[in-house]
Computed example of a mutant assay.
Amino acid sequence: MRFIMQTAVNMAVFLACALIFPNGFILENMTVAAVAALVLTILNRLLKPVLKVLALPLLIVSLGTFSLIINAALLELTAYFVPGFAFESFWWAFLVAVLMTVANLVFMNQTRIEMRRQ
């Protein structure tokens, strides 16, 4: 369930960023956004823990801020794998990574879902 929600949040951020930043962030259509969100979620699950362990000294010195650089690098790697999904420069990827981090903090920080009958 968390994988699907993570993919949905990533897709929503991609669509919002495509509307907000039409010059720096290139997204062809919604299908490309869905594929890019899926690829990014898979990369986050497989590659991100390895990168965090390798960059542990930098993460400690920067008090965790270096994770934004790791997120931007994963976004650039996603852009490499998905045609129709690109950034004008690394700084555009960094900006999208910051917005994605904020969105994930807001929407993915829910530890449980409560359902109550009325």
Rank of each mutant, 00 (worst) to 15 (best):
M1Q: 10
R2S: 12
I4D: 00
I4Q: 02
M5E: 08
Q6C: 03
Q6I: 04
T7V: 14
V9H: 03
N10I: 05
N10D: 11
N10F: 15
A12Q: 09
V13N: 08
V13I: 15
A18Y: 00
A18M: 01
I20W: 13
I20N: 07
I20A: 11
P22Q: 07
N23P: 00
G24I: 06
G24A: 10
F25M: 13
I26W: 02
I26T: 13
L27K: 01
L27S: 08
L27G: 04
E28M: 10
E28K: 14
A33T: 02
A36D: 00
A36S: 11
A37I: 01
L38K: 00
L40K: 13
T41S: 15
T41I: 03
I42Y: 06
I42N: 05
I42M: 13
I42W: 06
L43P: 04
L43I: 15
N44E: 06
L46H: 03
L47H: 06
P49Q: 05
P49C: 11
P49F: 12
V50C: 07
V50I: 15
V50T: 12
L51Q: 03
K52N: 14
V53P: 01
L54N: 10
A55E: 02
A55G: 10
L56Y: 06
L56C: 15
L56T: 14
P57K: 11
L58C: 14
L58M: 13
I60W: 08
I60E: 08
V61I: 15
V61A: 09
S62W: 00
S62N: 03
G64W: 04
G64I: 07
G64P: 04
G64K: 10
F66K: 03
S67T: 13
L68S: 04
L68G: 03
I69G: 00
I70V: 09
N71H: 10
N71Q: 08
A72Y: 06
A72V: 06
L74G: 09
L75W: 07
L75D: 05
T78H: 09
T78C: 11
T78W: 07
A79K: 04
F81R: 14
V82E: 08
V82S: 04
P83W: 01
P83D: 13
P83R: 13
G84D: 11
G84Y: 02
F85M: 10
F85I: 08
F85K: 02
A86F: 05
F87Q: 01
F87K: 05
F87A: 09
F87N: 06
E88I: 12
F90T: 01
W91H: 10
W92R: 02
W92S: 12
A93Y: 09
A93V: 08
A93E: 11
A93I: 11
F94P: 02
F94V: 09
L95F: 12
L95D: 02
L95C: 08
V96H: 03
A97R: 04
V98C: 13
L99N: 09
M100S: 15
M100E: 10
T101N: 13
T101D: 12
L105W: 15
V106S: 03
F107C: 09
M108W: 04
M108K: 12
N109E: 12
N109M: 04
Q110S: 12
Q110Y: 09
Q110L: 01
Q110M: 05
T111C: 01
R112Q: 15
I113E: 10
M115G: 01
R116G: 03
R116P: 00
R116C: 00
R117S: 06
